[in-house]
Simulated scan of single mutants.
Amino acid sequence: MRPLAVTLVLLLGGCVATPVFKHIPAHASPAPRDVARSINEQLERSVLWGGMVIELREFAGHAAIELLGYPLDAQARPVPQARDGGRFIAVRAGRLDPAEVVPGRFVTVSGRISGERLGRLNGEDYIWPEVDALEMHLWPRDLNLREHPRTRIGLGVQLSR
C-alpha cells in the first residue's frame, strides 16, 4: 500500500492548483459580448470570467481592470487560443499592484454584473459589462506559454513470435 501512496504523491505533486472560488455561478457564464447585448436583464447575475489584462486604472478606494475575455478551461484558466468573448471591466475594492496587474497578464474573476461602461473602441460605440469582482486570481506571467501537462496512464502489451 505504501508504494501506491508514494506514487500518487509524486504524480499529483506536479499538478497546478486550481483556484478555489467561493462565489461560483450555478450555471455557465455567458460571454461578456452576450451580456453587453442585454445588460439590464443581466444585472446582479453571478459570473466566472477570465481574460487578458488590457489596462489597469486606479481610483480612490477601488481599481478597474479592462480585460479581453476568453472562455475558461476546467481549472478556470482563460484559454487565449480560443475566440475572445469581448471586453469587460472588473472592479475590485482596494488597491492592486500595478507591477503585477500588467497588460498581457491573465486573470480569472468571480463576481456579479454591476453595470456597464459606454465608450468607443476602434471608432465604434462599445459597451463594457462591469463586474464587481468579489474574488480574483492572477495567473502566472507565463500562463500562455506553458504547455499544459499531458499525463497518460496505459497498459502496454507486446506480442512476439
Rank of each mutant, 00 (worst) to 15 (best):
P30Y: 11
E58S: 15
A64S: 13
V91M: 13
V47A: 06
S110Y: 00
A28F: 07
P3M: 05
E66D: 08
T108D: 02
A28G: 13
H137M: 09
S160V: 15
N40L: 15
P149C: 06
G14H: 02
L159M: 11
A60F: 07
S160G: 05
V53Y: 00
P98E: 04
Y126H: 13
Q75N: 12
G123W: 00
G13E: 09
R87G: 11
R33V: 11
D125L: 10
P19I: 07
R92S: 11
M52S: 11
T108Q: 04
P140H: 05
V53M: 08
P140K: 03
Q81N: 04
G111F: 01
P32C: 14
H137T: 14
R33E: 08
A17P: 02
G104F: 02
R95Q: 15
A28D: 11
A63E: 10
G94H: 02
A99N: 13
T7Q: 11
G69R: 02
R87T: 08
P3K: 03
V131K: 01
E44A: 06
L72I: 13
G94T: 03
M52I: 13
V47K: 00
G85N: 13
L159N: 01
Y126P: 00
D73N: 14
R120A: 12
P80G: 10
G94V: 04
W128M: 04
I24H: 02
R2C: 02
H27R: 14
G123Q: 04
R77I: 05
R45H: 08
N144R: 09
L43W: 04
D125K: 12
K22W: 09
T151G: 02
D142E: 15
R95K: 12
R146S: 13
R120H: 10
R120G: 06
P140D: 07
A133I: 07
L10F: 05
D142P: 06
L72R: 12
R87I: 10
Y126Q: 05
L143P: 12
E135L: 08
F59N: 03
T151M: 09
S114I: 08
G156W: 05
